[in-house]
Nucleic acid binder design. Sequence first.
DNA 1: CTGAAAGCGCTTACAG
DNA 2: CTGAAAGCGCTTACAG
Lengths: 345, 345
Amino acid sequence: MSSRGGSPTIVDVAREAGVSIKTVSRVLNHEPGVHESTREQVLKVVEALRYRPKQSARSLAGGRSFLIGLLYYDPSAAFVGSVQQGATLRCRELGYHLVVESLHNDAPDLRQQIDRMVLALRPDGMILTPPLCDNPEVLAALRDSGTPCVLMSPERDLPGVPSVRMDDVHAAEEITNVLLSLGHQRIAFIKGPPDQSASGMRYQGFVSALRAHGLTPDPDLIQPGDFTFASGRDAAHQLLSRRQRPTAVFASNDDMALGVLAAAQRLGLPVPAELSVVGFDDSPTAGLVWPPLTTVRQPMAAMARAAVEMLVAVQRPDMAGAPDDPELHKVLPHEIVVRDSTRAR
Amino acid sequence: MSSRGGSPTIVDVAREAGVSIKTVSRVLNHEPGVHESTREQVLKVVEALRYRPKQSARSLAGGRSFLIGLLYYDPSAAFVGSVQQGATLRCRELGYHLVVESLHNDAPDLRQQIDRMVLALRPDGMILTPPLCDNPEVLAALRDSGTPCVLMSPERDLPGVPSVRMDDVHAAEEITNVLLSLGHQRIAFIKGPPDQSASGMRYQGFVSALRAHGLTPDPDLIQPGDFTFASGRDAAHQLLSRRQRPTAVFASNDDMALGVLAAAQRLGLPVPAELSVVGFDDSPTAGLVWPPLTTVRQPMAAMARAAVEMLVAVQRPDMAGAPDDPELHKVLPHEIVVRDSTRAR
DNA sequence: CTGAAAGCGCTTACAG
DNA sequence: CTGAAAGCGCTTACAG
């Protein structure tokens, strides 16, 4: 006779299988030292009763919540979607669940909001996306609470704090090489805001690719930008009205590249016939404009999966995770996406 | 002396405040019948100890998880971001947390995936987005588990199941009126896929606005589409090569409108000078293309907030929610966003 | 290889 | 207006 009404508990399973609840617990948690026949019997009953252990009970007794938190600031940021998708799928595979929280990076009660979530939910780990992963207040709140964190593409790595990222410098080099191999020589570059480290790294990759081809960056072809559509459009207006126009533009993110496209169109300059354009990010929009943008795809979903794995691994005390562990800072491979905004000159 | 090590519990608060844990519980849950001075004393200690009740303990004892689930299929769908943002913010205000889960609408183990989440987490409510909110299997799994649901923009309303939506017919009428009032008479329409009810409603609004102006829809100017960029582009190629071109195109979603923009650009037809274009959705991309798109903004965040509120309200048994409650099916106001893709002819 | 006991930190009846 | 007791459904030591 199963418990009346509600869904089955571990007691129902134990009674039905003729074992103690401890044994059921062992089987469900893949603990060693259970006779094969016992295990099978338990699993059969679990199946028959459609039993699933209740998270709140496991959490209260065992101190693990099976919850991973994802903190983000700007929900419209292109990467949030992919990060979340990767994280939620990997969580499911590992028996975890993803709790999301949107936080203003400069909210006065940031600390309180984090404390509330952490103390109430006790997530087993937290994934931090930019710019929250570089916010000292956020980092401090999480450190104080003892919540394991993984930083996604932080400005700089912190000793002892796991992170996942891609290689911006190398990616910028590669996509510059795409342009160079198409015969472009006069390549303009639109920078990101100086306070973001990605800006510098992408510029560095651009310059390094140029130099490797025996070219020197032309200061006239370097324009400032701030990663917004408008700044890309304005920079392009400047660049495309030079006496000697560039034949290609490398906008250091997609939003600005979209701005370049808009400017070119307005000036009646056909892309890619008269001008090649590349971006960086592979935002959802990049493939939906005309012409579709050649760009760099950040391995966001893979990074998120890796982050979840690192967080779950931390749960097992055997994986101490020394502060100098090289595995603490992962760099994942990116992808160059060649579409129709680039052409040989 | 507080409990050594770990964070404070209700026992610590009770001891410190000189009351029983039951009284602390009363204060924290805003239960009536606590003397004002007692309440203040308790709150003072709560503040001093930075005490927050643990979700797992509350959930296990009280049967409420303070978790709301958000189920979605396509993470890149424009509306998911706004829905999630609205839901997560409202959850925070109400002391809840949002757990997200991405599900394939046609996964063979859909039922199992839902059962796993529901039985493990016991969310107090679930928000379903299209197309999951119209998936009989999903609906059945949730009904069987007794989890309260709110459907976001379902194809059709189900008796007794709460829903939130906007008025597609009316919105389509209004945006058609925008074109009509600009002097356009030859207005083309690109339909959505026949199996989505939004397609029919938007077309209906279009026709009704035309008729109200004494115009009859011209079959030559009605093209099929399927809500994809490609279908919009192809439909536009057809329309713009007619002997007598339309002066405006109403694409029944933004992705298709973006396709129209691409086609016009390719044909050298300047928008909005020679052709006005309107979409529907106000997707993130709509404002980032050139020219920025005139479109309809769905009140996604507001709908999500309303959904959370309905779910939280259900928790209180006093709100029975009769199957014929008119409040069960909410219709929220939309917004017409006029940008630069439309001009008087 | 298996189990009986205690306890995680709250809320729910039930008293007074 | 306030409290003592029981219990939610698991896991953690601890035995054997």
